[in-house]
């Protein structure tokens, strides 16, 4: 079975993120990049599916991004993915969620996939739009926000997380499944894994090779447009008191004054 994991390169979770004033895209200057932590859950799930089926499956990581995203690809390979496909093209820069999904879907026409796994969101833009859109572009079913995944014969069964529990769903393969945090505990790359990653194949594809229409991608091709942005003014520090046995009462005073009580 061919298992594909959609991955994204994002700024480090602890980094202050900002937009570039020039083109209003994410400013990656001086910011450490990592593999989207949410995609690690998807990759871990892919590796577990492969292992539970005897290890004969192939796990491919598919990532769209500039050359510098190779660090995130290496991380995925060192965790245990067998190979990677890296879609890079100068005209991709500035693609919004739908344009990104379009490119990934086009790439998936070249990459065999019985099941496509993805993190339910990225920690930078966090729209969660990509997995369902990829499925739609390919005419596939999607089961999103899975907190449990089971692959059967030509079918995938998942528990989709809801506020009060879950929805038990089933889809015919091939299908797109996005997973939530907490579905598993992603493994740390082993030393052996890190060494092995260096010799694993990374296939580079550009827009032409996946037959993507360049007018639908990048800043110009995206159907959303950032008009302007500004940093949020810093919050004013309020009153901080030391508890002298009356902390609860003082807190109640504050809450009552603001009409929360």
């Amino acid at each position: 079975m061919e298992i594909v994991v959609l991955a994204k390169r994002v700024p480090d979770t602890a980094a202050e993120k900002r937009l570039d004033p020039e083109d209003k895209t994410l400013d990656r200057e001086g910011v450490e990049s990592i593999l989207n932590p949410m995609d690690e859950y998807a990759l871990e799930e892919a590796l577990r599916i492969k292992e539970s089926r005897g290890g004969g499956d192939t796990v491919t990581v598919l990532l769209m991004g500039p050359d510098s995203a190779v660090g995130a690809i290496r991380k995925a390979l060192s965790m245990g993915a067998d190979r990677a496909v890296h879609v890079r093209d100068a005209s991709i820069h500035g693609s919004d969620a739908m344009a990104t999904a379009y490119v990934l879907a086009q790439a998936l026409r070249k990459v065999p996939a019985d099941i496509i796994l993805a993190g339910a969101e990225s920690t930078d833009s966090r729209t969660s739009l990509v997995p369902a859109a990829v499925a739609e572009f390919l005419g596939l079913p999607s089961l999103t926000y899975a907190k449990k995944v089971e692959v059967g014969e030509g079918v995938v069964r998942v528990h989709r997380e809801t506020e009060v529990g879950y929805e038990e769903c089933e889809a015919a393969l091939p299908a797109v499944v996005s997973v939530v945090k907490g579905i598993n505990e992603p493994r740390y790359p082993s030393f052996k894994g890190i060494m092995a990653a260096k010799s694993k194949p990374v296939e580079a594809l550009d827009l032409a090779s996946i037959g993507a229409d360049a007018s639908r991608v990048g800043l110009a091709g995206s159907r959303t447009e950032v008009l302007s942005f500004q940093p949020r003014p810093p919050r004013q520090k309020g009153e901080v008191v030391k508890d002298e046995g009356d902390g609860g009462v003082k807190l109640a005073d504050f809450l009552q004054q603001r009409k929360f009580i």
Partner: peptide, 12 residues
């Protein structure tokens, strides 16, 4: 955006 660090105006 970015957990409220930046306010973005956007259109379709």
């Amino acid at each position: 955006a970015f957990g409220g660090a930046t306010t973005v105006r956007a259109a379709l």
